[in-house]
Design a protein around this nucleic acid. Sequence first.
DNA 1: GACCACTATTGCAACGTTGCATGCCACGTT
DNA 2: AACGTGGCATGCAACGTTGCAATAGTGGTC
Lengths: 333, 333
Amino acid sequence: MSASLRQVAERAGVSIRTVSNVVSGFALVAPETRARVQAAIDELQYRPNAAARHLRGGRSGLVALAIPEIASPYFGELAGLLVDEAQKRSWMLLVQQTGGDAGHERSLLDGVRGQVVDGLVLSPWALAPRDLRRRPDAVPLVLLGEQDADGLLDHVAVDSVAAARDATAHLLAQGRTRIAAIGPQPHLENGTAARRVEGYRKALAEAGLPADPRLEIPVDRLHRADGADAMRRLIADGLEVDALFCFSDQLALGAMQTALRHGRTIPADLAVAGFDDIEDGRYATPALTTIAPDKAAIAREALGCLADRLGGDPAAPARRIVIPHRLVVRDSA
Amino acid sequence: MSASLRQVAERAGVSIRTVSNVVSGFALVAPETRARVQAAIDELQYRPNAAARHLRGGRSGLVALAIPEIASPYFGELAGLLVDEAQKRSWMLLVQQTGGDAGHERSLLDGVRGQVVDGLVLSPWALAPRDLRRRPDAVPLVLLGEQDADGLLDHVAVDSVAAARDATAHLLAQGRTRIAAIGPQPHLENGTAARRVEGYRKALAEAGLPADPRLEIPVDRLHRADGADAMRRLIADGLEVDALFCFSDQLALGAMQTALRHGRTIPADLAVAGFDDIEDGRYATPALTTIAPDKAAIAREALGCLADRLGGDPAAPARRIVIPHRLVVRDSA
DNA sequence: GACCACTATTGCAACGTTGCATGCCACGTT
DNA sequence: AACGTGGCATGCAACGTTGCAATAGTGGTC
């Protein structure tokens, strides 16, 4: 095992407490003593024991990130930014996958928290805000994505209504009139998809176009396969559309593949806009027009929230942080 | 804070030790006592304190994964599998990003290890095996990717020579003769790229074709942008090729986009094969032919290695685990 | 009735750290 | 010479857990 304060102290001929003072940096230590202790530390390659510090101080320096799926590009990119941001704050990031399962999400709330990590960043999928509420004396929690929990829990998200409206308005501005929305998720409590539907309809209404419910194609998840599937249904149903607004880039990429295979030309026959601005979209053919949330800001703000709770008043009123987004126009629309 | 053993003990009217026995599951505890203690545990919502257990037992239940970049699809998919596999073993996964920086990789070896995690899974990028060797009494380490460290460190990887040979042979079998290899990295010590070059040349030699050094296009990293860049250079240099073997799917996707933009048809004009079998490749247009490493096996074996070290002899001879791969033929070649 | 075997429960100590309070010393002041 | 002051250094205790060894209680056997 690694050397402990005691061994360093013996070697340097001082007390444990003095070594601790040297390690901590401050406190009054005579320069000569400090040098001697430092020498012992170097020789023994002393490293503070994280477990002891955690036990003593109640802080582990760990933060958990719980997302449905790391392999999903959007969450992968976000996780990467969170890891970097955590490092800046001398935290380490523990990654958990919920698989979008409600039970799993709930058990994470009870389990991971309180005993290992100092805080939790959760991107809920299946859990409604009311399930998240009951947390007696647990560690700070920040939610990613819009939640109907204003005032109850900190959360960080783009304005999905506005973003969806922007994307749809862009398609309308290209002269498209039959715009399908791929991505509603009526089976989930999660409010994000509902908000994007709302923004989509809003843009149509503003353009004086009627909303055709048949053009709102629900999906099970937000993967490429779901997008491909939705596009197949659209084609099979004989619904003619000249544009797609997909609630995620992955859906868009899946839908594009199917459309291309069925002989559609993009964007001539079919304009496509996505949501998330994942890297794949930039290199797809054609390159995907999309809504780009400021992911770095999400990471920064989420950890900032945790830091504030940890450093300040844990019972301060919950914050709702809105992250900027922008429309990135590429080749697909 | 959460309840401790002491408080449960007081409530149940037994000693701390007895509560500990109940929590641990075994040891001799009278059914009646056990029930009483269990009731107290439930009432107080007792959760074992991870820090204390770690301090006492020396095991944190945490394993670190250090990879160049989570946002990269290959590593994202791998990380997801490792998280799941870790969960099966009741570990939690701490994710670190090295950014492919040697200093960062080195500091992870010294820092993360020994004090917080029980083991480390490292995918080295810039570090040569000799840098990894000096680790006095550190936690178990498993390397991902082939390393010239046989006998020194555990590592888990596909047989890159064979895999690259398979991919190239497939292109040859399609009648291609001018096959470029995109992905050599002469500036790195990392042996993976060198092995893939070796497999590529081997296949050419077996087909009786000469190796043209101008067709081996070096790249800085393995991103889409690097692939796109390599393809641009190939075109700018006026080198006519009828196939590409790219050392990663990302390189392949980047190269494909550039080729398509320059009017090439895939696979008619240009057959493309990648490496990694990331999901993007399956949904690219055309869908990407690639080498698919058994990523689940990588995750399983890597953690298995750690488990063996932790459970058995830490000084057992190092193992070299070869992961199966297969060629997945899709539309691009 | 003394001894043993066995079950059930307990006390002590230690893991490595840090907050708090105290001790010690030298120096300058009264 | 006695006293206060400030700079350094230290001892004790506690965070919550578990390994070890010991204790107390019960029933059976010779």
